[in-house]
Design a protein around this nucleic acid. Sequence first.
DNA 1: ACCCAGGCATTGG
DNA 2: CCAATGCATGGG
Length: 246
Amino acid sequence: MALLAVPQPFDFELTTERFRSFGRDLANLSVDGALHRVVGARKLVGAEFDLDGFYRWSRGDPVLKRLTKTLAGFRPSLAPDPFETLVTSITAQQVSLFAAFAIRNRLIERFGRRVGSAYSFPTRERLARAREEELVAVGFSRRKAEYVLGLVREPVDLHELASLPDEEVKRRLVSIRGIGEWTAEWFLARHLARPRAWPVGDVALDKAVRAFYPEAEDIRAFGRRFDPFQNLTAHYLLTGARVAPP
DNA sequence: ACCCAGGCATTGG
DNA sequence: CCAATGCATGGG
């Protein structure tokens, strides 16, 4: 971390808050204030977000104006690897993040590689050799185990998606069984850092938006007012709902 | 014993 | 096109 150049402003505690709020996270282990991560540190601290532009733009919205002050320096952490992003999202579909983290930790312990006090996330190659029963044993539903095993067999180059526009990324991801709009939007938001990603259908985002904007009706339509900062807005509302509720 | 939680595919109208 | 249903875990 000492050699990592992070743009200012930056608040380490706020940026890593999510890794501590839903139980222990084996792949993003927070110990004694230091964040241990095997690879991808720059992504992890959200270095590529345009916070200055967001803060200037947010002055026109009283809710975000307050949140950007309260959460000053919060850089949404990004997921460094596309495969890990998708598998992690599958674990989080429908269930609480407490349950998702527990299942994900068991997946990592079972199929990942231990590196010091942290673990590397299971590779696509390793999970390609996993059996459905083994995934069920760590807590996946049978259906979700099918999704993961189907994903590892998809002939798609997940790294190539980074070069495509938002809509094309979504189109390709949603064509994969087990990946719907919610998962695709979070991929755009948390892996590719696309400014306009807006995870419609997310129950936590839905609740956060309604908490801060009681007048909100359709969340998809409401997101347009945050253009072109939907991604940062979603993250500030979600974290705000936890640490600085209205 | 419920109910909810950062969805999705499947089925049936 | 939309409504109903099953899924499996963790916390309240």
